[in-house]
Every structure is written in structure tokens, then in C-alpha cells.
Design a protein around this nucleic acid. Sequence first.
DNA 1: GTGGACATTATTGTACACAATCCCTGCCAC
DNA 2: GTGGCAGGGATTGTGTACAATAATGTCCAC
Lengths: 227, 227
Amino acid sequence: MTHVQARTATAETVAEALERAIHEHRLPPGTKLGEDELSEIYGVSRTRIRAALQALSHRRLVEHQRNRGAFVAQPTVREAREVFEARALLEPRTARSAAMRMSDAHVTALQAHIDAEHAALHAGENGRALSLSGEFHIEIARIADQSTIEAIVRQLVVRSSLIIALYWRRRSALCESHAHGALIDAFAARDGALAEELMAHHLLDLVTSLDLRNQSSQPGSLRAALG
Amino acid sequence: MTHVQARTATAETVAEALERAIHEHRLPPGTKLGEDELSEIYGVSRTRIRAALQALSHRRLVEHQRNRGAFVAQPTVREAREVFEARALLEPRTARSAAMRMSDAHVTALQAHIDAEHAALHAGENGRALSLSGEFHIEIARIADQSTIEAIVRQLVVRSSLIIALYWRRRSALCESHAHGALIDAFAARDGALAEELMAHHLLDLVTSLDLRNQSSQPGSLRAALG
DNA sequence: GTGGACATTATTGTACACAATCCCTGCCAC
DNA sequence: GTGGCAGGGATTGTGTACAATAATGTCCAC
């Protein structure tokens, strides 16, 4: 559990908590996010909850349905492809930039990140491992010293977590570990070209590990399931 | 003038109107956006105004100061470099994708866009011309059929408009016209590689036409201006 | 005349109450 | 038994009133 907020949770605090929960798959896609429920959970008025949900809606992490409420977003197959297309454009060359600026402290920090991810994986905390894996990508943008790209990548990474929740296929269990490890080696060697190449391949591997053939578990899937 | 809203303006309507005004330099960076003032202008309650300002704040177009209100954002030199770095990663390869999917109708639509931009320029509507110039870039992402990238590019383009308002140097007046015209030629020829190259150069030219040496007209500029 | 402290005013932050809308349940007709 | 319709309950949308805070103007002491 995350620490309880000291006095009163601000709208941003609530939004961050919800974003973490979504990233860690504690809130699956499609979950109803009732305002009264959330306001009771976090001990704040509905006004702040609404502001938090609006913020997440702008980041495409929750979808608003008029007079129905807010739900954790369910990215379509199309959106899934688009998100990874955007990541493919941004992250490889950002990894190259990061390699240029990489200090020894950065490398050890990234390594610690991976270690934590492995620890979570072995502890059975699957969602937390996925979240840490995603933050690895965000950290690279931060090391590249590009806060604007970092913000965009963060948004895309969390959306990717939703996409993985919907379209993950069982095979290739330990997908991440090696890819991130190889990236760290490239960073340690300050090999920007290699880092760019590895990141591009890593993202490609991620996409191919998804099942994006047709819409699954989306509105209209009933017909396909019962046909 | 834009058309008056039919009955009541929704929060999104207000946000779009403000975004247009920012894009067209009718609202310069640093302009105070008072809630009461806006609610009177648009004839809606403060609640909706607040929602609209929040949306623009999430897109980094306005900055909120606690208990002070909302102001049109004033991107720093650092942010300016970051925005164009992000655009340099996204737009060239998106232009290539667009070239692949380009239909004759798309080409004529883009040409019409340029014509409108030139017309606005000759009519002295400088801000409107800049806005149309920016929408040219957004249109390319739309033709590439990448709505996620389109949303990101739209955000970056409007932020670029703020950056231009702050850091534009007088020289090189008709910067855009030729670059966009050359891009259209590449699109018409379905030459994706050329389009990518041209877009990359175009964005580079844009950056070099800015004066990003040190902070100008930023908080603290008073001392520099009066020293 | 200058500096500081205080009161005033204007603006934003927050919560709450009411209105609008939708979903669900139960009933009735056929 | 099925279909439609109406009523009740619950949830979100919206406006408004009040509280909190910061900026400004004024006054007094030195």
C-alpha cells in the first residue's frame, strides 16, 4: 500500500495515486470510477475528485461518458498501434541522447531500477514489476534532460500499461529483463547508436508480443464471441 | 471573428476558442486570464471557465499560479528547445508516413491551406497566417492517420506559437512559404524520403530563426531591461 | 518625506445544494 | 410469458455561496 496522505489530499495527489494504480494494473481497463466512492476513499470532496478525473481524462487514461461517469480507459487496437508508433518515434533517439549525458550515477540508478523490477517479479507483484519496467523508460527521458519528451513518454507508457492489460498474449514471459539489461550495457559503454538500436528493437518486440489482430473485449466483441 | 456559440458554450468550446486565440497571438504570453472576466465574455459560469483553463493548463498553454490565477504560458528558453526537439523526433517521420497515404484530395486540401495562409499574410492578418501555418503541420499528422501523434503535435504546435511570440527574431520574414510549398511538391510526388528530409530541415530552420541565447522577457527581465 | 504596518478589495479555492439524466425495477396490458 | 411503460433511486452536471489568500491603498510614526 502507498502511504496515506498527511492531511488532505490535493487533486494532483489523487490523480497521481490513481495513475499509479492504473499503471500497476490494480485498476483494470473499464473499471468504474465513481465520484462519491472516490471522495469517500480519499476523504476529499467531490470537487477535487472531479478535477483529478479530468486531469486523467486529458491524459487519455480515463474516459468520460456523459451522465454515466468516468471509467478506466480501454484503448482500442487502433489506439494501441498509435501509441507504440509514437513511442517508436520518440524513445530510440531519446535513448541515444541519454547515452551521451549518462553519468556513472545514472547507470547505477538504472541498474537499481531493474533490480527492483526483478525483485517485484519474484515476489509475485506482477503489476508493480510492470510499473517499474515502465518507469525505466521514463527515467531514460529524464536522463536525456528532456522534460517535455519525458511528460509525453510518461503518458504513453501508462497508456501502454492499459494496452498490455488488454492485449497481452501469454507467451514470452520474461520479455523485459534482457532488453533492459542490454540497454544498460549500452548506456554504460556510452554507445548512443547501440542504445538507439536496442530501444527500437525493444519497442518492436513489445508490439509483436501483443495480440492486435482485431478488437477483443471491446464493445461489439459479444457478437464475435458468440457467433 | 469566429461564430458565436449557438446557445451555451461548453467547457470544450471555451477551451478551443482560447486555444485559437493563443495560437493566433491574440492572447500574448503572460496575459492574465481572469475567471470572472472570461465567464462574462462567454456568458457561462465560472465552473466551466475553470474546467477550460484546467484543460489548457494540462496542455501547457496556460500556467496556474496558486491564488493568483491563470496566465497564458511563457515558455522558457529551455522549454522552447525541448518543444522543437520533440517535434524534430515526431514530425519528419510522420511526414514520410503521410506521403505514403497521400491522396490527390489531400494534396489539394493542403494546397488550399497554404493559399489561405498566403491570403491571410497579404491581408495583414499575421496571427491568423501563423495559425494556419501551424495547422498545416497538424494536418500532415492527420493525413498520416495517427490521431495520437496528431494530438501531441497539436499541443507542440500551439506551444511553438507561444515560443515564436517570445523569441522570434525579425529577419527572414517569409520563412514558411517556401518550405511548405516544397513539402507539398514532395507529397504530390509521393516521395516519402524527401518529405521526411524537408520536414527535418524546415523544423531546424524554425529553431535557428529564434533567439534562444538567454532568457528574454521572462521573470527577472525587468532588472535586465532597466539595468 | 520615507518606511512599515494595517485595512480594504478583488480574485481564486472549495464545498455544497439543486437540477438533469440515466439505469433499474416493478407493474400492467396484450 | 413477453413487451412496453412508468416510477423510484442513484449518479453526474452545474451554479452559487462562502472561505482563504494575495495584492493594493492608506494611514501613522519617525
